[in-house]
Amino acid sequence: MTAMIAPVAVIAWRWRTALGADIEAAVTRMLAGESGAIANPEPAYRVRAIAPIAGAPPRTRHDRFVRRLGAFAIDAATQVAAGLAPDLRLGLYSAVGGLRAHWDDMLAAFVRQRDDGIDAWALGLREIHPFWMLRHLSNNVHALLAADLGARGDGATYGGASAGAQAIAAAAWALHAGAIDTAIVVAHDSLLEPETLVELGERDQGQLPGEAAAALVLVRPDDPRARDRLASVAAFAGAGAPTGDAMRGAIDAFSAMGPIDLVDGDHALPAATARTAIAAAFGEIGAVTPLVQTIALAGILKRTRARVALGLAAGEPDLITAIRIEVPA
């Protein structure tokens, strides 16, 4: 367990969420009990409420190659990385959901397909946009961001519901190993695509599907820039049922680092698990959850005497994440 955990300092952050891009305002709204949920405008789905990011991302030269959430991620990461030197000491770690198909822009090419896949090209695939593969490539946002930001150092793209925690953990270890001096961690995910909404509607467990993008800049704790840190974060990405040993192991490991004042869970956790209002406010946001928890929990901690928070999340299938956030005194 300890092999996965290495705290690092967060020196910048940005997000795009259902409660807006202004972090202070969003935390204030969250603490006031507000939510980014809106009534689902599409009656074909049985999901009653969704938490979308309002509006469209700003236009960029990458518009032909990225989809909406990727554009939000590029926007957030570009802002968070302002002023960072582009070189081999700058790492980039990306997280994409990927457990969901995200084929929403391609379903028109799928609906006439045969079950056996015969004549798939003639039955619709030929109508798909020539750039579809770039748009859907798992590391496309990563590649474009690396070029834009000049991030030539260590890096990787992670997938799945725990990808945000994987990316933070990998960045932390690259920093501690001295492979890089600065890490940008960026994540984007959305549960607001047709197949996921249909599936969630059939389950009818009251989940609030949402979407978000977020970015962090991380440095080593002994880096001079860490003196002005916003928070310290350590992340764990595990597997197993959220009530099982995997989650307990992460909690134990973080508890060993000192007292925990506040715990945030998400809707996928059992009702008995302690939780704050983050998932209710921002919706289920998959791979972005650990990043949004980092920012939101730090925002809560700064308004209280509490110093340390634990953020837990569970995503399908059997992926769990845990992060420990500590704010400066």
């Binding site: 798992s138 590391n139 992670y158 997938g159 799945g160």
Partner: peptide
């Protein structure tokens, strides 16, 4: 993970 009964951390690398 399921076939081998693994219960440790899991990382899913999708770096093309």
């Amino acid at each position: 993970r399921r076939a081998l009964g693994l219960r440790g951390p899991t990382t899913i690398n999708v770096s093309a």
